[in-house]
Amino acid sequence: MPARSERSLDAFLPLTATTFHVLLALVDEPRHGYGIMKQLEASSGKAVGPGTVYGALRRLAQEGLVREGEEREAERGRHPRQLFEITELGQQVLTAEGGRLAYLADLARAKDLVPEG
């Protein structure tokens, strides 16, 4: 897939909170659904279930921001776990969203709206 221009990256923004946190969870390493769920809980403070996670993953996969990686063998009697990884496009979109959020934060800071901490 050819790299996209800045302009076309904008078409993905803004990200919803859930998709943002899901992408964030995949930056360090590929994870399976439950791993993403736990990261999501840690980074957003929101306790979601598998439905929300796979709903987000399905849309992100359709848009080419994540892809299915390898399958990891699980203990006996259980299904192998599907790992998901962030694509290059996903990285770019996440960076663009980070920039957008930073810009918004700067605006707020200029008006003294961000408590320093």
Binding site: Y34, G49, P50, G51, R78, R81, Q82
Partner: peptide, 21 residues
């Protein structure tokens, strides 16, 4: 309850996640 394609793609994974949960 989920739409068929969704279910087909993630059924096993979701069940395993639920078990972990």
């Amino acid at each position: 309850l989920l739409p068929r394609p969704f279910r087909a793609a993630y059924r096993n994974q979701m069940a395993e996640d639920f078990r972990d949960l």
